[in-house]
């Protein structure tokens, strides 16, 4: 069992504070959804936890199994068990998916230890079969010229290969039609289990029809302002974010 604790986290880009004291604990096996309108700091939260150099954590803590990860570089955080599924994955021309994932696997091995290539390909192909991804995919350059759906499936494939303890999924549903959304959700549901904790960031309730969360949080102006179970997502869908805004205004008035 693993635990990811985010404690009173403050994140700034340059001088501007975006995340303003966010607290959340995720246990392995749980799926948490963070919902909120655009510009409320959802993506900033995920990138800051993953270690993007443009985001400064000004105060607070992020603990993985009780140990702070804030002094670690992005690659060290990944090797410690974090995974970020990008909203807009980078295109890497000239680097095939197979070589890219191989380098990621190799990075997880001790120095001087060589990856067993045939075992690696066997595992890669079995994951691809599981996610119903064509094997030709592996020789294509990472995300180059991919459709929105292909990019998201490529993210899911990487997650399946790297088997993180916690996956931060940033707007995994953005830019997807309903078929692509279903494929991506199936992928996440396939991996769901006692060894994986998921933080699902989304703007719309739609994704949560396919990936049913254990907990739902509403993020507003850099904080979590409301938490509940999956019914909160439905309530939000029905009442809109203005409902939260009015509640907040009433509370602070």
């Amino acid at each position: 069992m693993s635990q990811l604790e985010i404690k009173n986290l403050h994140v700034a880009i340059g001088e501007k504070e975006i995340v303003k004291g966010l607290t959340l604990t995720i246990q392995s096996g749980e799926v948490h959804a963070i919902m909120g309108p655009n510009g409320t700091g959802k993506s900033t939260l995920s990138k800051a936890i993953a270690g993007h150099p443009d985001y400064t954590i000004t105060s607070g803590e992020v603990l993985l199994d009780g140990k702070s990860i804030l002094e670690l570089e992005a690659d060290e955080r990944a090797r410690a068990g974090l995974f970020l599924a990008f909203q807009y994955p980078s295109e890497i021309p000239g680097v095939s998916i197979a070589n890219f994932l191989r380098a990621a696997q190799q990075a997880r091995m001790a120095e001087g230890e060589e990856l067993d290539a045939s075992a690696y390909y066997k595992r890669l192909y079995s994951k691809m079969d599981l996610l119903k991804i064509d094997r030709k995919f592996t020789s294509r350059s990472v995300n180059e010229g991919f459709s929105g759906g292909e990019k998201k499936r490529c993210e899911i494939l990487q997650m399946a290969m790297l088997e993180p303890k916690f996956s931060l999924m940033d707007e995994t549903d953005s830019g997807l039609d309903i078929d692509a959304l279903r494929i991506v959700a199936d992928g996440v549901n396939t991996m769901r289990g006692p060894n994986l904790g998921v933080l699902l960031i989304t703007h719309y309730q739609r994704l949560l029809d396919y990936i049913v969360p254990d907990h739902v949080h509403v993020m507003w102006d850099g904080r979590i302002v409301k938490s509940g179970d999956k019914s909160l997502a439905l309530e939000l869908e029905a009442k809109g974010y203005d409902w939260v805004k009015k509640e907040l205004a009433a509370a602070t008035a």
């Binding site: 992005a74 690659d75 380098a103």
Partner: peptide, 8 residues
Amino acid sequence: FYLQSRGI
């Protein structure tokens, strides 16, 4: 960053 976020 994308590559590093995969542990590379």
